[in-house]
Simulated assay, not measured.
Amino acid sequence: MKVHPGHEITSLQYIFLLTGVQVGVAVLSLPRKLAETAGTDGWISILVWWLVSMLASLIIVQIMKNSPRGSLPDWAAEVLGVWAGKTIALLLTLYFCVLLYDGLTKSVLITKTWLLPNTPAYVITVLLLLPTYMIARHGPRIVGRYCELIVYLSLWIPLVYLLPLKQAHFIHLLPVVKDGWQPILTGAKEMIYPTLGMAATFVLYPYLKHKEKATAAVIASSSLTMLTYLFMTLICLVYYSPDEIAEYNNPVISVLKSIEFRFIERIEVPFIAFYLTIFSLVWIPTMYLATFCSSWLFARKDIRGQLQILCILIALATYFYTPTLYQNLMMEKILIGFGLSVEYIFPLILLSFIVLYNRLRRRNC
C-alpha cells in the first residue's frame, strides 16, 4: 500500500503521534509501581529505560530506511515474498488491535470508576468509538493533526501539577541510589508497558514528509515520553511519603485532591474528563494502524470498511464481555510479552537480517 501525496505528516505530528501512543492510562499508576519496586529511586528507572527504548526506536528507523515509500509489509513482500509480507501484516494487525483494546478498555474502566459509575461499559465504548471512527477514517494526516491539537491543549496541565509542590518534601528523594542499582534496574521493567507503541514507525515512516529528520524525531519522541513520565513520577514521589504512595492505586489522580479552588469541589473529576482526550491518543492512532495493516493483508485500498468492522466488533465484545480490573492487569502482562517481541526482539533480528542481506547482495553484484 503506497503513500498518497495528500497523507504526509510533518515531523512534529510524527513526534506527537508516537508520544501519544505511548503515554496512556499507564501514567496514572506508574509512580506507585515504580515506588513499590525501586522506592524513591524509581525516577532513575525511567532514565534507564529511556535509553533502552530510544535505542529500540532508532533500530526501527534504520530498518524503515530500506523502505522509504512503503510500510514494513511492503518491504517484506518485495524482498522476501508476498507471504512474508502478509505474515508481518497479520502480526502488526494483531499487535495494534491488542494495544487498541487495552487502551480503550482501561479508559472505559477509569470513566466508570470516576465519572459514570451507573453507565454500562458498552455505552461508554460506543460513545468513544464514534469520534474515533470519524478521525481515523481520514488517514494519518488528520490523525496527526488531532494528536498535535490535543498536545497543544494539554500544555497547561504541568502548571497545575506544580501547585502540590507547596506541600512537597524533596527530602523524600534522598539519599539517591540508597539501596544500590538492583532495585532501579528491576524497576526499569515497569517501564516496558508504558513505552509500548514504537512499532507505529513500521507504518508511519513512509508518511513522514521529511524522512531525513526521522532519527531526530524518534529521539525527540522518546525524550518527550520520558519527560512526561519523569515529571509525574517526581511530583508524586515528593508529595507522598515512601510508604504512603503505595496506598494509592492512581497517585497521579489522587494528588489532585490537594488542590483547592472555590468554584469547584472535586477538581480531579474534570481532570479525568480531559484526560480522556489524552488517552484517546492511544486508541485512535492504533485503530488506524490496525486497519491499515488489515487492509494491506486483504489487499484493500480503502480502510473505511475495515474500520467499520473493527468498531462493530469492539462494541459487540464490550457488550457481551467487559474485562474486570484484574483481567485487565492479566491482559497487560500478555501485552508486555507481545510488545517485547514485536518492538525489541523482532526489530533486532530484522536489522541483523537486513545487514546480512545487503552485504550478500553487494557481493553478488
Results as ranks from 00 to 15, higher is better:
250 N>C: 12
299 A>G: 04
268 E>R: 08
283 W>A: 06
243 D>F: 15
275 Y>C: 02
249 N>S: 00
330 M>S: 01
302 D>K: 00
246 A>K: 06
322 T>N: 08
272 I>M: 09
333 K>A: 10
309 I>S: 11
326 Y>M: 06
333 K>P: 01
269 V>N: 09
256 L>A: 04
290 A>D: 07
330 M>Q: 04
316 L>K: 05
294 S>Y: 15
264 I>E: 03
306 Q>M: 07
330 M>Y: 11
297 L>A: 08
308 Q>R: 13
244 E>K: 11
334 I>P: 03
328 N>K: 03
330 M>L: 08
261 F>L: 09
244 E>Q: 13
331 M>V: 15
260 E>F: 11
298 F>M: 02
247 E>F: 06
277 T>Y: 02
321 Y>D: 03
271 F>V: 13
327 Q>L: 09
311 C>L: 03
255 V>G: 05
262 R>C: 04
307 L>I: 05
258 S>R: 02
299 A>L: 11
319 Y>E: 00
263 F>G: 02
331 M>T: 15
332 E>D: 14
313 L>F: 14
295 S>H: 08
252 V>P: 08
313 L>D: 10
312 I>N: 05
269 V>P: 03
290 A>R: 05
250 N>Y: 15
255 V>I: 12
242 P>Y: 06
310 L>D: 15
311 C>A: 12
304 R>N: 11
248 Y>N: 04
273 A>M: 08
301 K>V: 12
330 M>A: 04
311 C>K: 06
276 L>H: 04
333 K>I: 05
319 Y>W: 00
294 S>F: 15
272 I>Y: 00
245 I>M: 08
309 I>F: 14
283 W>N: 00
258 S>I: 13
